[in-house]
Each structure stands twice: as C-alpha cells, then as structure tokens.
Design a protein around this nucleic acid. Structure first.
Lengths: 256, 256
DNA sequence: CGTAAAATTGACTGACTTCAAATTCGGTGG
DNA sequence: CCACCGAATTTGAAGTCAGTCAATTTTACG
C-alpha cells in the first residue's frame, strides 16, 4: 500500500487490496478519489431508505449497519460494517436506496461521488473488479444471514453473529477474536437476528452460563471459541477471506 | 438487441439490457461468449455448495434456485431464478461456492467459463457494469428476503413471495402477474420463507379462503392483487425495475 | 391401475413473544 | 463525590404463532 501526504481513504484501499492486489497507479487513483470526510454520532443516518444517493460512503472509523423497515414497523438489521467497508455502494450504483444505513457508534466516513467511483471503475477495470468483489462478499454475508435468520434457533443465531463479528474484526486488523468490544444493544442484536430483545437477553445468559462466552458491559470474551463456533454453526468460508488466511500460491487465469 | 444465426445467449443479453443499454459491439460480444448448453432435470445440481466453480451459468429456459444448508440439516432457499438470470456469477467470481444452485424445473442453461466473463468485463466496462448491476440486484433481493424471513409473519411471507414471483415473471416477459404457474412444492416454499411445509399449506389455504389468491394444482391466480400486495407488505422498489416500469426520460451521468 | 411424491388435516407441543415491572448502567450536574 | 435520570438490561408470568408428529387424501405419471 502506498502512503501519501493525505491518505484519508487508506482504510478503503486496504480493504480493496484484501480482494485483489492493485498496481501502483490504481492505488494512487483510489486514494485520489474526491471525497468529503464527515463525523457522525451513534444512530445518525448515513443513507435513508428510499433516497437517491449521490455518494458512496467509505467507513474510515467506527461501526455502521444497514437496515430495512417492514410495513408493520419492525426493523431488520442486514449487516454490520467496520472501517474500510464501502457501506452504500449497492444503493449508490443502483440509483435508489432499497435500504438505510446508520451509524452504530461514532463514525468517521468519507463520502465519494458515485460518478467518480463509476468513472474509476470504467477507467481502471482492476479497481472496478475489486469494488465489485466487495459488493459480492456483502452479498455472500447476506445469504449467510438469511440462513441464520431462516433456519437456525435463537442460540445458534446469536453465537453465529458473535463469531462473525470476531473473525471480521480480526481479519480487518481491528482486534482479536478472543475478546472484543461489541457496540450493539440487545435490541440491535435482536433486530439483526430476527428475535426480540428479551429473548436475546435470555440467550446471551444461556451462552454465558454454559461457558461459551464471558460478558462485561459491552465487551465479549469468546471464552470457548471452539464450542461457540460449533453452537453457532459458524464456518467462515462465506466471508471469502481465503486470500489472507491461506497463503495463496499461484493462481492465474487458467480455469475453464 | 441483435439477432444472430446462433443466439443461444439471447435471454442473457435481454436481461443485461434491462440494466443498461449496450452498444452494438457489446451486444455482439455478449452473444459471442464461449459456452456450452446443458439440459437439466428438476432437482439436479448446477453448482455444489463448497465447490470451486469454473463456469458462470446463464439460465436459458426453466427455473432454478439458490440454497444453503445449515449444520442441523435445514435448508434455506435464497432466491428463485428465471430465464436470462446469471445464476452463479457470485460463486464463480468469488472463486468458492458459498451456496448451491439447483434446477427447480427442467432447465436449459449455458455454462460460460468464468475467465471469459471476467475478460469481457475488463475489455468492455459497460458489459462489466451490466453484470455488476445484475449481481447488485440479486443482493437487493437477498436483503428483502432477509426482512421477509426475519420480520414478517407467515401470511405476509408467503404473500410477498407470490407477489415477487408474479412481478418478476411479468418484467421478464414470461407471463402475467394475474395468473401464473408456480413450479414450487410447498416444501420448497417453506424453505424459501423459513417455515414448515405444514404451515405453508395452512397459510396458502388462508390466503385462498380470504379471496386473495385462487389455486389450481400448481398455478396461482392473484385474484385480488391489491390486497395480496398489501398482505405481503410488497413494494417492488427493491427489484430495481424502474427502467422498464417507468418510461424513463433522460438520465445521464450527471449526478452528484 | 399402481405407486411414490405432494398436499391436506388434526391434535398436541414448544420456542419465542408479549406485557409489565424491577434493576443496573452511564453520564451529568450540583 | 454523589444524586439523579433516561436508556439498557434483566426477570417473571402468561400467551401464541408456528412446529412436530402422524395419519389420510390427492396428484402425477408410468
């Protein structure tokens, strides 16, 4: 990765390079994307469901989440995001926001005009491919969450979410899977897992009672990672982190 | 759209042009993608979960679905696909299949080497963008399904699925929303909605009793579209069909 | 016709929800 | 440092939507 006098977008570049190594001009071009940095408080809206966003948003610091609201008023949290994530590329490229994005904690985010993103993707296909890859991995996580919400019981859903957060945090170099701060209320956990906050509370206590996790105020210790992952039916393949976890030998464009 | 002496991939081109108009060379290039056409029987696997697919698959005729299987043996159907859909571009580009794809009915599908797809996306960015768009819309549908499974009751889930199928069928020019053949067993409907087949059965009868649908063996009449859509909390925005449903005036790359 | 898969039905069960209240936490001002 | 307040967590009791189990009927199809 290049360093530059003003590399506010460094977290984004780091994330993109997880998907595919970029050449030096490509790296420069990513860092040179026009953008405005904004600070947001917890709960503040980054994108409203239904709006026509003109900017894509790269998270630089803090956490955010995507959500949709049903006609009955219930909310479903769709994904959690951490620094480096491109948090509304989906909405921006599609032209109409089919979901909202909100700050989970205090957040620092870079807003990049969609057209600049699109133009860069056209001009430098390998950057386009990296961005595309980013959206594909988001899609994979959506699929796993659909399985989680649709076909696992409460205990497994919560355990799964705890495992995913831990592994993604570690993969992004933002903490360790054995102990981390989980900046979500039990109500937010409920909305992410399709449960109620009351049941989340009971389920967390169950996991704690059984020694799978330890909890301080807002921090989680995965006291027994092995059993927690088993309880959560957690297999990290869907995160598509192979590039980083397995040292990849040579793999060229020779398939087919 | 171009016609060509051997335009097996015409349904794919038609679908891509729903997302963005393509120039004549681009159209030619899509139709010229190397591919093998295969016929499959209902239930046959197109991609196995866990495999490393070397081909992307364009549905030419018939229906298919994506699925994931949890450790407890339960299955979640993630999406339904119809002719023109690129049904495992996600898996192919990510390199490892995080979900499986199966034929729902008898199917005719074109298998295109991933590398040819990737090369075309690099060579002709507007084709790449159309393919990207296709995967983004898939993602949007995943999000809506997550909301459906996580936050709607059984009646709404089923009604929503029936509405989505109807609208997509109509948008693809494959039938009318008022009456169509639904080639899914109640067990498959259950796996798509996070319910059991028994409860799907009862819920369908409920919708029928209330005059929202009529059923013959495997066909659905949306007897009362308005109320069905309301019962299903169905708002088609997430399908991102604006190009086709609203006659779009001019919208260039002038956002921001 | 005959057979297997799919749909249907009934009785019972249970995981999770709902409602409501009590307790703890975290920050803020005196 | 401590009192205070709203938000978040925790707990209990009761209710329900959907699941489970187990037939029975209907359909598809050779």
């Amino acid at each position: 990765m290049l360093d530059s006098p003003c590399a506010a977008l460094a977290p984004l570049l780091k994330k993109l390079e997880m998907w595919a190594p970029l050449g030096e001009p490509e790296q420069r071009a990513v860092l040179a994307l026009p953008h405005t940095v904004r600070r947001l408080d917890p709960g503040q809206t980054i994108v409203w469901e239904g709006e026509r966003p003109a900017h894509a948003c790269a998270l630089l610091w803090g956490y955010a989440f995507r959500q949709k609201v049903a006609g009955n008023g219930a909310r479903q949290i769709l994904s959690i995001h951490m620094p480096g994530d491109m948090v509304d590329l989906h909405n921006a490229l599609l032209g109409a926001a089919d979901h909202g994005v909100q700050a989970l904690t205090r957040v620092e985010a870079a807003f990049i005009p969609v057209d600049a993103v699109r133009a860069l993707a056209f001009a430098m296909p390998s950057v386009g491919m990296a961005l595309w890859h980013e959206t594909l991995v988001d899609g994979s996580i959506f699929r796993e969450w659909m399985l989680n919400v649709g076909r696992r019981d409460a205990r497994a859903r919560i355990a799964h979410l705890l495992c995913e957060f831990a592994v993604r945090l570690e993969a992004a170099g933002l903490g360790e899977r054995s102990r981390y701060e989980l900046p979500m209320t039990q109500e937010q956990l409920a909305d992410a897992t399709g449960l109620t906050s009351v049941h989340v509370n009971r389920t967390l206590k169950g996991l704690e009672r059984d020694g799978l996790i330890e909890r301080t105020i807002r921090a989680i210790s995965t006291a027994n990672w092995h059993d927690l992952a088993r309880a959560g039916d957690f297999q990290p393949g869907y995160l598509h982190l192979a590039h980083t976890s397995r040292p990849q030998l040579t793999r060229g464009f020779d398939g087919g």
